[in-house]
Design a protein around this nucleic acid. Sequence first.
DNA 1: TAGATTGTTAATCGATTAACAATC
DNA 2: TAGATTGTTAATCGATTAACAATC
Lengths: 218, 218
Amino acid sequence: MRFKIPKVVIKRLPIYLRTLLDLERRRVEMVSSQELGELTGVSSAQIRKDLAYFGDFGKPGVGYDVGYLLTNLRNILGLNKEIPVVLVGAGHLGTAFAHYNRIPRQGIKIGAIFDTDPQKVGRRVAGLKIRDMGELEETVGRLRARIAIIAVPAPAVQEVTKRLVEAGVRGVLNFAPVSLKVPENVHVHNLDTTLELQSLAFYVEQDTLRSSGAEPRG
Amino acid sequence: MRFKIPKVVIKRLPIYLRTLLDLERRRVEMVSSQELGELTGVSSAQIRKDLAYFGDFGKPGVGYDVGYLLTNLRNILGLNKEIPVVLVGAGHLGTAFAHYNRIPRQGIKIGAIFDTDPQKVGRRVAGLKIRDMGELEETVGRLRARIAIIAVPAPAVQEVTKRLVEAGVRGVLNFAPVSLKVPENVHVHNLDTTLELQSLAFYVEQDTLRSSGAEPRG
DNA sequence: TAGATTGTTAATCGATTAACAATC
DNA sequence: TAGATTGTTAATCGATTAACAATC
């Protein structure tokens, strides 16, 4: 990249991608930043600015070609080829994830599933055989997996992450409520239901207080 | 609240809460903003500023009393009492969520689980009987549930949300990859694995290009 | 051409960091 | 008291919005 792209911009690109896929499915050929803004909830100015970090994809007076912008977004995000990921943990959450991603989306394909439980090892989930954790390093290397989804109990997450990183993983999607320590060349995205629920509780509580006429902290 | 609290601040409060719970478990009685910062990855100045939105909880020269700050954070987030939530969808993801929250954490307690599938209705998940969607409104009302977790297929999410909101729900945790339309007094938090994976792909791809010496877009 | 919409610059808004007087 | 750390103000940094010349 010629200069640093803000993280908020990268977070929005998949939203644009999803919306454009929907437009493509509906045979829409051109879209303006205004229209895309209404569909995504992002301002038109912001969309134009976000896209301009990566190139000039639009035509003044016309808008953006849906197919052309889709191709470019896929290239930017690195989704223009198959991306093998490994899933660690075949509990309820891991199983849910495996089923949801049974069919690869935008190149992202689960290449292997691991678990420690001997009862589970060898069984199949979403068409994939559950492997023993002992095969982790070898499999990650063979698949050249750079991304891992971690759906193991919180106490095991740090150790699993360490092994994955040593095996070559550079991006981790973590579902456990822990702050992972990783080298700075490794990227962690957390999906923490507890944090989201607790912050949701704040807003719901606020609204309840307000509507009941109570006056917090004077 | 006397003035508007930034959303980023509210998102950090549960992180402080979690870390303080850990300190309490380890019998630590006092903590400085500096120490809390090292444990959470948030700067000490930011922690002091965040907390100061809600009151003066610390003592100059000493720091924060762990128990006292915990109590206050619980009060701020509205977690000082039981918070009934309903879970819609008893598929893999809903089941994972139910098992993880079998024991209430910080007051948040699953009060009911719903599904449309007649095969599932009546069966038990994490000690709770799965109810038919027909009971949704009545049950939400009876439990006075203000928060719902939605773990149903994407095409059903908007309709389910509409019914929940009409029944009194004001906060929604949505796992499906859709932009929910809700009245402005309803809060939606999205946990979207697809978006997180795709943005992760960007960073991993970048690093791969950089380390291989390739030069993107000149 | 006339109308529409881009890419980009300048203005605004908001959040983080630095610094320090107050105070335990 | 001397040392430490808070709460808060001012300075900095970053992201969003507004506006418009360029151009299809």
